[in-house]
Amino acid sequence: MEEKIKPTKIIDARGSFCPGPLMELIKAYKSAKLNDIISVYSTDSGTKRDASAWIKKSNNELIGVFEHEGYYEIVMKKTKG
């Protein structure tokens, strides 16, 4: 992830399979505040598609999908109150 974006919360769902990481993201989203940035780490490539689709459907902002050594990072901003 780019240096300047600092997540409010990081969910490490590496090793868990879809839809585990997405459900962890939704759980964190429920308790997050407006404008919080949530980042989820996942080793399941399906999370890229699933989490991005959910972020869009729920009218929040998808900041980006990043590929790291052995895992993906999906970053969102809670823009819906």
């Binding site: 879809c18 839809p19 959910w54």
Partner: peptide
């Protein structure tokens, strides 16, 4: 259903 399909396993 909560995730983006009708069951957890694709």
């Amino acid at each position: 259903f909560p995730p983006n399909r009708v069951f957890t396993i694709e």
